[in-house]
Design a protein around this nucleic acid. Structure first.
Length: 808
RNA sequence: GCCGCUGUGGCGAAAUCGGCAGACGCGCGGGACUUAGAAUCCCGUGGGAGACCAUGCAGGUUCGAUCCCUGUCAGCGGCACCA
């Protein structure tokens, strides 16, 4: 079969008959199958795209044949850093390179032959999309979910520019190798923490991989503890969060993050120099390094003291970078006797270590970090663990120095980017009116084309007079725009909603369109998005629901992650590894169906693995075998005789395949689905070799087989369907359903075990009771021989699998 | 470092709820067809001469463990400005 020609032919027909478009008028149940949209950074589709979209499209087609009205849109996540970096390097404008890349990728995606509804395509960098991204920002702002505060950025002093984490290599700028420091800027945040509890509890309702839910749970990081206030001699108050308030009597010092607002204020003249030096050093370390439990602990004394509210003890205040400003209150109470890190730190700096918890069962070796009995705390001595924490927290609350508190590791979402290639933040700063949101009627705030990308200390937009200079929407006076753009994760947090209504120019989407299609039934994409994109999208959905734009709680009911296809050397494919494998040559040589089928068969979908093309020939051979037998059987005259054991076996194979392929496709277990289809082809060949054939059964089996294979090799099966006299499109046929009667066997092979060791196999009639099975097993010659004089103690029967005789 | 995942023949992999480890393929070996090769078709194929031994390694629970538990090693994904 000339696959190039066949692909062209069927793609043209599908497009002409709008086969791939969602049918607005259909009464069938809808099924929204969505793959994560592509980022057009490289010019071409890579194996990862294919591995995501090919098999997922087979799932969508399978659902279509099962009678669903399937919606499978595609688009581009087109804003982002790489296009801007490319512009800095080559001078090619991000808009131009992005549009060019998108054009290439669209063409390749069409050539894949997936059932994408291109009539609903979206590109996040287009005005009619980012207008609504800006609208989202304004709604969140109105709802009090967007606010400004200071936050650190990576700053390269030499390039005078903000760097992404990716651009910082070993603490240095990837462009000029200067040491990167952290610098505070006032930036926009979304209050995702307001939804922490619901983002956590909502996980229970989702059909998502358990590991993904667990990762989100840990990312949100709920912990129940106590907030405690330590009064400083300066009159300032240090608030700390602890999950171990039962150890508060053992506090021997307090630690602030170097970025803590009180850090400098509490520093005494004598310590000034050391503290400044330390703060600068700390600004160079990455957060990952700072959280490392094996890294040498460092810190510096501020010169100040504060008072432990429970016992009035005066303890020193230190700065140390193992405390993060972004977690909890940015300050901790240190209890070296009962915390590993505090113990190490106290030992290093000669700070006292006071034991206030004792091990209930045995010697107390410090640091003792488990629950134990409180000692040396007069009113609380003898209390233990949760009970102690409860009493002590209540006591602290009575003192007016804090109390029980739930804390989350989740932080608010920083959305400001000091970059060009993104959606401008729709905010104006007016000397008289302050921070003013751009009125919705004035959206979009257009991204100007003529900008200077060269990094020179200012965001590209900040240097653009025409963009920056504006009038205040409130007072009409002179004002300036926010020079920053939005994080691209903002664009991708609501795109699945826009697909429902992409042309709408009065709203991001109509309620009617969204009600019809959303939520997404099955979302397919990489596991690397487990904590960020997938959490942000959930947050957007919940916020939009609370603003009355939606009436569902979760955007993605079911989630599936495809694995990562690595380079042949086992490393992630990258230019630097020089191990990139392009799908193009394979598609060219074998055709898109064979390539898709190979991806489905050769790898576990959720695991991925190193690339290897061993076996792609086997897929080509399999398809040849299918074509050959299909055409051969087509030309047989029809006979209904005979129907004996051979026919029963073929019918069993046919129905077994239907049953398992259906189950496996539903589970995204594509490799086993293809294996079951190969088994059926083998059975058909075997049957066809018989001298006497029931060709009616054979023809029906081949027909079912083509239907089974169609979602996985769509062009190929359409062609064979047509060549065997099928009418219309194969994708308008129903997926086969197994006949349970054909799957009932008279007897099943059991493994017979004696004391859990296999002795022999035995055929046991279906429907035999456990007693009958036991008797049959005991009567077997192999069993009698090995049994000797031993008596039966117990008999374990696992239906349709084994019988285990325990003797002694 | 922290969070999560993975580890099974020469290779890709499979194994429902703890129940016959290795389905389906690749590769390899043998055979058929052919002047010959390619292609195709058929048979065999975890290791071991064997009792037996095998699911990264060391233990544990169980009648029975690839699966559950403890420890450990290796690889992969993420760690909040790559997307």
């Amino acid at each position: 079969m000339d696959m190039k020609e066949v692909e062209r032919k069927w793609q043209a027909r599908w497009t002409k008959e709008k086969l791939n478009e969602f049918d607005e008028k259909s009464t069938k149940p809808k099924k929204y199958v969505l793959e994560m949209f592509s980022y057009p950074s490289g010019a071409k589709l890579h194996i990862g795209h294919w591995f995501n979209y090919g098999p997922a499209d087979s799932y969508a087609r399978f659902k279509r044949m099962q009678g669903y009205n399937v919606f499978q849109p595609m688009g581009f996540d087109a804003f982002g850093l790489p296009a801007e970096n490319y512009a800095i390097k080559t001078g090619v404008h991000p808009k131009d390179s992005t549009e060019k890349n998108i054009a290439t990728m669209e063409e390749q995606l069409r050539a894949m032959g997936a059932m994408f509804d291109w009539s609903k395509e979206i590109k996040t960098c287009e005005e009619n999309y980012y207008k609504w991204t800006q609208w989202m920002f304004l709604q969140l702002y109105k709802k009090g979910l967007a606010y400004r505060k200071e936050a650190p950025v990576n700053w390269c002093p030499s390039c005078a520019t903000v760097l992404a984490n990716e651009q910082v290599v070993d603490g240095r700028c990837e462009r000029c190798d200067s040491v990167v420091v952290r610098k505070n800027l006032t930036q926009w945040f979304f209050k995702i923490t307001e939804y922490a509890e619901e983002l956590l509890s909502g996980l229970e309702t989702l059909d998502w991989p358990e590991k993904t839910k667990l990762m989100q749970k840990n990312w949100i990081g709920k912990s129940t503890g106590c907030e405690i206030e330590f009064d400083c001699e300066t009159g300032d108050k240090i608030r700390v969060f602890t999950t171990r308030c039962d150890t508060v009597f053992g506090v021997t010092y307090v630690v602030l993050a170097p970025e803590h607002p009180l850090a400098r204020k509490l520093t005494t003249a004598g310590q000034r120099e050391a503290v400044e030096k330390y703060i600068l050093e700390a600004s160079k370390a990455t957060e990952i390094d700072r959280l490392s439990t094996t890294r040498e602990k460092t810190g510096v004394f501020t010169g100040s003291y504060c008072i432990n509210p429970v016992n009035g003890k005066r303890v020193p205040v230190y700065l140390a970078d193992y405390v993060l400003a972004s977690y909890g209150t940015g300050a901790v109470m240190a209890v070296p006797a009962h915390d590993e890190r505090d113990y190490v730190f106290a030992t290093k700096y000669g700070l006292p270590i006071e034991k206030v918890i004792e091990n209930r069962d045995g010697e107390t070796v410090l640091p003792f970090c488990e629950d134990g009995i409180v000692v040396g705390a007069i009113n609380f001595d003898g209390l233990c663990g949760e009970e102690a924490r409860d009493e002590i927290a209540n006591h602290i609350a009575k003192l007016g120095k804090g109390g029980k508190k739930v804390n989350y590791r989740l932080r608010d979402w920083l959305v400001s980017r000091q970059r060009y290639w993104g959606a401008p933040i729709p905010i104006v700063y007016c000397p008289h009116c302050g921070t003013v949101p751009v009125p919705e009627k004035d959206l979009p705030v257009k991204l100007p084309y003529d900008v200077e990308f060269r990094p020179d200390g200012k965001s590209p937009l900040a240097k653009h007079e025409g963009f920056m200079h504006t009038t205040c929407p409130v007072c009409g006076g002179e004002a300036t725009r926010d020079p920053d753009t939005l994080d691209t994760f903002v664009c991708s947090s609501w795109y699945y909603l826009r697909y429902a209504d992409p042309e709408n120019d009065r709203a991001p989407f109509s309620r009617e369109a969204v009600d019809k299609l959303l939520p997404v039934d099955t979302y397919v994409g990489g596991a690397e998005h487990a904590c960020m994109h997938l959490l942000y999208a959930r947050f957007f959905t919940k916020a939009l629901r609370d603003m009355g734009y939606l009436d569902f709680d979760e955007p993605f009911k079911r989630l599936v992650h495809q694995g990562v296809i690595l380079g042949p050397d086992g490393n992630r494919m990258s230019k630097s590894h020089g191990n990139i494998v392009s799908p193009d040559e394979y598609v060219e040589e074998y055709g898109s169906d064979a390539f898709r089928l190979y991806l489905m068969f050769g790898f576990s979908y959720t695991e991925g693995g190193p690339w290897s093309d061993d076996g792609i020939k086997a897929i080509a051979r399999f398809m040849d075998r299918v074509e050959k037998i299909t055409l051969k059987v087509r030309d047989y005259p029809e006979t209904n005789e005979p129907f004996g054991a051979e026919e029963k076996a073929l019918d069993y194979a046919r129905n077994y395949a239907i049953q398992h392929v259906t189950k496996d496709l539903e589970a995204f277990s594509f490799n086993t689905a293809v294996a079951r289809m190969m088994e059926l082809v083998n059975s058909v060949y075997k049957y066809d070799a018989l001298p006497q054939k029931n060709t009616a059964l054979l023809k029906a089996t081949v027909r079912d087989f083509l239907l089974l294979l169609a979602p996985c090799a769509p062009h190929f099966c359409e062609e064979l369907w047509e060549q065997t006299g099928g009418k219309g499109f194969i994708f308008e046929e129903s997926y086969p359903v197994e006949n349970p009667a054909a799957l009932i066997l008279d007897e099943t092979e059991y493994a017979v075990q004696l004391n859990s060791k296999i002795v022999c196999k035995a055929m046991i009639p279906s429907g035999a009771s456990n007693e009958e099975i036991e008797a049959l097993a005991l009567a077997l010659p192999e069993v009698r021989e090995k049994l000797g004089g031993k008596t039966l103690k117990k008999c374990i029967v696992v239906p349709k699998r084994l019988v285990n005789l325990i003797v002694g």
